[in-house]
Design a protein around this nucleic acid. Structure first.
Length: 421
DNA sequence: TCTCCATACC
DNA sequence: CAGGTATGGAGAC
């Protein structure tokens, strides 16, 4: 492989990032994370009762029992039997029961639909997390040992399997409660340190968006700043819905925006969404230039690169089919941002162990969740550890790459992962 | 065993 | 028809 790596100019990425990361990740897998099975068993019981009650109510509203977990049976009940509006059959001849189909129906007051959505979320939490995680506790160590893949994601991100510890719930209150079961060993505390808006900072930096660079340097609320500049409203008069819209556009930019996608995300028409995007790219015109240049690079080379030289191959960029070509173009925009963030995080992971050792600190790195590192830290060492981890993460792009914006890492610690995030 | 659907995360 | 992933259940084979 070595000559092929050299020919592709990937020697530095391989020798300075991927290879030294291997022992770091191996140590994380070996160490594992402590999970309290009693907490999860208690939650499983509560969730089972709620599922049972919802199921009974759903069957009563439907007029007969059926398998709520079967999308086929559910579609037949809601759209054929009960005649709810909006049912459309896909290519498999079945009705879609996806959440974006069911949510409007729930809002219109169709009680059975809101109960189905509740049932689904409870069912997901129970089967995937509260039931499954206790079974993954090692007899030998009493801890859960995930497996991280360094080649799982095309952009250079890690992935996590058996179990996936990178998708533990946090969004909803019930989901977040699962993190209470992720606990520190006695005498230790859990420390979570995450990058603040790293991909947006990278977009501002690589595209050279002067207004955003200035905003990040001054530590401003970047979504509010975006809204203020795009909609022409003074910062202190900004309504919450404008900030929300601006935040959605900022995310859209990172994903390689489409008017259709943005419209679906924030519930406006594609025409309005396109107007938003046009105004945004007029105001931050450097971003438009960068996006065009990046797509052109992908067309010419068939790949795009991160700031550290990692390549992400893009197929379909010259497709005649417009939808497939547009997909490849969005990948070309997203991959350098997501991939550079992944590179920076990997550099931080490689450096943090030696930095802690030099300071005679005994924290153990347990998990990486893309922009977050989770450590188990001896209680007495927490302040010194936070200081070192933050510094390593905030400095991880240097000296190989000089960014035009600061990287900011935020730390929180507690006895469990729910409180520490 | 495989695909599809739905849904969990960043 | 917004970028990147993993998992569980249903249902087909």
């Amino acid at each position: 492989m070595k000559p092929r790596i050299a020919q592709s100019h990937l020697t530095r990425v391989y020798e300075r990032i991927e290879r030294p990361l291997v022992p770091v990740v191996a140590q994380m897998e070996t160490t594992g994370v402590r999970i309290d099975p009693e907490i999860l068993r208690g939650q499983s019981n509560t969730l089972a009762q709620r599922m049972q009650k919802l199921e009974t109510e759903i069957h009563a509203l439907a007029g007969h029992p059926f398998n709520v977990g079967s999308t086929q049976q559910l579609g037949a009940v809601l759209f054929s039997e009960m005649g709810l509006p909006g049912g459309s059959k896909g290519k498999n001849g079945h009705y879609s029961t996806a959440s974006d189909v069911l949510e409007p129906l729930a809002e219109q007051g169709h009680e059975i639909v809101s109960k189905v959505l509740d049932w689904r979320s409870v069912s997901k939490l129970k089967s995937t997390y509260t039931d499954a995680l206790p079974q993954q506790i090692s007899q030998k160590t009493g801890r859960v040992h995930t497996s991280f893949s360094l080649v799982g994601a095309a952009t250079g991100r890690l992935s996590s399997t058996d179990p996936n510890l990178q998708n533990i719930p946090i969004r909803t209150e019930d989901g977040r409660a699962i993190r209470q079961a992720f606990v520190a060993e006695d005498g230790f505390t859990l420390l979570s340190v995450d990058y603040s808006q790293i991909e947006m900072r990278l977009a501002a930096s690589v595209a050279g968006v002067e207004a955003l660079i200035e905003g990040f340097r001054e530590g401003l609320d970047i979504h509010a700043l975006t809204a203020s500049q795009v909609f022409g409203i003074p910062l202190k008069e900004l309504p919450a819905d404008k900030r929300r819209a601006a935040k959605a556009i900022n995310f859209g930019i990172i994903y390689g925006i489409s008017g259709f996608g943005l419209s679906k995300q924030i519930g406006i028409s594609p025409g309005e969404a396109n107007a938003f995007i046009r105004d945004y790219l007029d105001r931050f015109h450097e971003l438009r230039d960068w996006m065009e240049a990046t797509k052109e690079f992908a067309r010419e080379h068939g790949y795009v690169e991160t700031l550290f030289g990692r390549r992400i191959h893009i197929t379909g960029i010259k497709e005649k089919n417009a939808a497939r070509r547009a997909f490849a173009e969005r990948q070309s925009i997203n991959a350098p941002l997501q991939g550079t963030a992944a590179d920076i995080m990997k550099r931080a992971m490689i450096r943090v162990g030696p930095a802690l050792k030099d300071a005679k600190l005994n924290a153990r790195l347990l998990l990486q969740v893309h922009d977050e590192l989770v450590f188990e830290v001896p209680k007495k060492e927490i302040d010194a550890t936070v200081e070192i981890v933050k510094n390593v993460m905030e400095g991880a792009s240097a000296p190989a790459v000089t960014l035009r914006v600061p990287l900011v890492a935020e730390a929180k610690h507690a006895a469990n992962w729910a409180e520490a995030h």
